[in-house]
């Protein structure tokens, strides 16, 4: 993150990191900026209020699978549908680490944890589906084990005006070690991850020999050769105004399909904070800047002598 920030001209006092509770939430303490380590699940609400009264700051909400998708799920949804201008980094390790190892909303069914000794019977939630259903304008997935990828996604999130939602696959080496290993492990990743590039077919495999195409509404893997006609292949379009395509990408899950990483969706529409401020400015233009005399004495008064 610090490396990402150093690429921008914004001075350090202009960054604010807001977190809730959980492993992810210690993040503000590792930064030399303004920080607010708040309460469980509520970081987006604090970021919302701060953004509404200050348009200069670069505001980052750091959350996790428990903080953001369980206790704070409501705020996550509503921040995204409002398209308020801040960034949400959701660090997903598929476990409750701070409370020492209970299953989380993203833990796979059957996972054995301290609170599910016989295996979890909760179906997991897909963070990016929530983001798409909430019509977030910037949606991405990255992973801790490829820092360069993570850095480039953060950079794009920062540049995006409106809400940015980034899911980060993060390994918890204490309570859920190697949860993502089958997908992101060094030996597997070429065949099990597909890196999204705008305008290009979804090509993956050690020797770039596989691509994705649609069969009805389902994705399937087909052989690929460089230079082949791409018209039957799925070509990545992060600017698609409709959410359907991005949703299909979120359904690509291990082991049936390679898992997509990168920017799923990147569209623009007016932000909540912008519209709020413009209502204020319009009202001032129309009615003049409010003064106290008008406020207190302005309506149906009578005088007693």
């Amino acid at each position: 993150m610090q490396r990402t920030l150093s690429k921008f001209d914004l001075p350090k006092e202009k960054y604010v990191f807001v977190s809730g509770i959980g492993c992810s939430s210690r993040f503000p303490y590792y930064m030399n900026n303004y920080g607010f380590h708040s309460i469980h699940g509520r970081a987006p609400t604090i970021a919302t209020g701060l953004r509404c009264v200050n348009s200069d700051l670069s505001i980052w909400v750091i959350t996790g699978d428990g903080d953001g998708l369980s206790i704070g799920g409501n705020h996550l949804i509503h921040s995204m549908r409002r398209n308020i201008n801040f960034n949400i980094l959701l660090v997903n390790n598929r476990i409750y680490g701070l409370t020492k190892g209970q299953y989380s909303p993203t833990s796979p069914i059957g996972q054995v944890t301290k609170s599910s000794p016989l295996g979890s019977i909760d179906y997991p939630i897909n963070a990016l589906c929530i983001a798409i259903a909430s019509e977030a304008t910037f949606i991405a997935r990255t992973l801790d084990s490829i820092p360069a990828h993570m850095g480039s996604v953060f950079e794009r999130a920062m540049k995006h005006k409106g809400i940015s939602f980034v899911e980060i696959y993060q390994n918890c080496n204490i309570f859920n070690d190697k949860a993502f290993e089958p997908v992101t492990g060094r030996d597997n990743r070429d065949d099990r991850m597909v890196m999204l590039e705008h305008g290009k077919p979804l090509v993956f495999g050690k020797s770039k020999d596989k691509a994705i195409r649609l069969n009805g509404l389902k994705t399937e893997v087909v052989p690929y050769q460089e230079g082949m006609d791409a018209k039957d292949l799925l070509v990545h379009n992060e600017n698609d105004p409709e959410p359907n395509y991005a949703y299909i990408l979120t359904q690509m899950e291990h082991p049936e399909m390679p898992v997509p990483f990168g920017v799923f969706r990147n569209i623009t529409k007016p932000t909540y904070d912008e519209m709020l401020e413009s209502q204020v400015q319009d009202a001032i233009k129309k009615r003049g800047k409010g003064d106290l005399k008008e406020l207190i004495y302005g309506r149906d008064t009578w005088t007693v002598k």
Binding site: I46, G49, V53, N74, H75, H78
Partner: peptide
């Protein structure tokens, strides 16, 4: 700000106070 719930309403107010 008409919030999504009571908690968001107070959280946002705290955010505004933090913002001065």
């Amino acid at each position: 700000f008409q919030a999504e719930d009571e908690i968001a309403a107070v959280g946002a107010a705290i955010g505004a106070s933090f913002g001065g």
